[in-house]
Simulated assay, not measured.
Amino acid sequence: MRDPAGSGPTDHGRGSSDFRAERIGLLSISLGTAGLGGAWQSATAGLGAPLWVSDALFAVSGLVWAVLLVQYIRHGGWRWRNVLDDLHHPGQGFTLAYIPIVGMLAAGHLSRFGLDAARWGYAAFAAAAAIIAARLLAHWVTGGLAAAPLHPGYLLPVVSAPFISSATASTLRLPEVAAATFAVGVLYWLAFGTVILGGLVANGGGMPRPARPTLTVLVIPPATGGLAWTAAHQGTFDVVGQGFAGLLLFTLLVVAFLLPDLRQQSFHYGYWVFSFPVAAGANFLIRWLHGTDVAGWRALSWILLTAVSMAFTVLYGATLWHARRRRIIASA
């Protein structure tokens, strides 16, 4: 069996399952990059930032998405039985939602090149996201998570995906779909968010250290929910929009206090779990600063966007260095 970081085939069975899990987990790179592209797109509308930066980021996201998805399919991802096994994995099953989420984000971004084509692409990815979320929920409510520690990653397919679907539907001028998917996100945020947060408190910090970075996923629901709401209301920040802003700012404060507990012993690809929460939070805050007309909003928005972009640059560099180091070790 070749090292999972390489490009050669693995053997069947557990090796292929591990390889597929790693490929899907690495889609967090694509998701985070698309999220940063969305933040730059918001800056294009509000700050006059160059659109080519957003286009370039979405191109990189799409390339990573396509390469990893092809590798996943080649190593057994075309079999429904393997997909179900991967989906039911107690720790990583939720990551399959990365596939349609990135697709929906790309459909919204590319809609200016052809609305009808973007709508068809969105419909396919939104349906896939709904199937993944429904299958996960059916598995969870029948005891599929009984032996697994709860963590906020489980919010991604059942809360964040519907909110992203809603925001994209508004971009594609599908208000009825936007309202329907927004309602799904709100319901399951209230339901699962309460259970997961209560479980974390009751567990008393017993979450395994490798899983602790998923605590940053707590940022995604208020960020994507706020983006969905404001997209449906033409960027206007009404009482509900301000409420999402308050939730996001408070959650960011909580995560800031959690940072000492999120430290890892060394760099690994799992650091990319931080990327989409950071990008989505920055995207919403840029829209909020503009929509609320905060004093100095233009300078604050550029400072925020620059800081986030620099953090991503460091993360890209560390990822390339880590991949090169793994290849050297594997070939030694």
Rank of each mutant, 00 (worst) to 15 (best):
D3R: 08
A5M: 13
Q264W: 07
H268R: 13
L105A: 07
A34N: 03
Q264E: 14
Q41H: 13
A21P: 00
L150T: 06
G225D: 08
S28F: 09
A307C: 15
H268Q: 15
S165M: 14
Q265L: 06
S266I: 00
W80I: 15
R173G: 07
L253S: 09
L227K: 03
G270Y: 03
G15Q: 14
G38D: 09
R112F: 02
D85G: 12
I164Y: 00
N82Q: 15
L248M: 03
T181V: 08
A178Y: 06
D11K: 10
A34H: 10
R298S: 09
A211C: 04
F192R: 05
W302A: 02
P210D: 15
M104Y: 09
V67I: 12
G6A: 11
L96Q: 08
G153R: 10
G225I: 08
Y269A: 14
A223Y: 01
Q242Y: 11
I328P: 06
V255Q: 12
S170E: 12
N283D: 05
A279E: 06
G185R: 05
P221T: 06
G270P: 02
G153S: 10
R20Q: 13
L156Q: 12
V159A: 07
L96I: 14
L248I: 04
L115N: 08
A279M: 00
W80L: 15
D86K: 00
P213Q: 06
A107H: 04
S42G: 01
V70Y: 11
I329T: 13
R81W: 07
R23D: 02
W272V: 04
G108L: 03
L259G: 09
A133Q: 00
I196M: 14
V240R: 03
Q71D: 12
P277Q: 05
R112P: 00
W40E: 04
I132S: 08
S54W: 04
S42K: 05
A118P: 01
A282T: 04
F163W: 08
A5V: 10
L304Y: 09
F182N: 14
F94P: 01
A256E: 05
I220V: 12
G38F: 02
V294N: 05
T181E: 11
I286T: 00
T181Y: 10
P149W: 09
G198T: 13
L136K: 01
T95A: 15
S30N: 03
L172Y: 08
L249T: 13
F182M: 12
G198P: 11
M1Y: 04
S61T: 05
P162V: 12
R112G: 13
G25M: 01
A179E: 14
G8T: 05
Y154P: 02
A256G: 07
A127D: 07
G46D: 14
A279C: 04
F125T: 08
W229H: 12
V254N: 14
T292F: 05
G46W: 06
V186P: 06
G153Y: 02
R209W: 01
S16F: 06
A39V: 12
G62F: 03
R326C: 02
V184T: 13
G243I: 06
I24S: 11
L110W: 08
I24Y: 05
H75Y: 02
V255F: 10
R326S: 02
W52C: 04
F250R: 08
V159M: 05
V53K: 08
G144R: 03
V184Y: 14
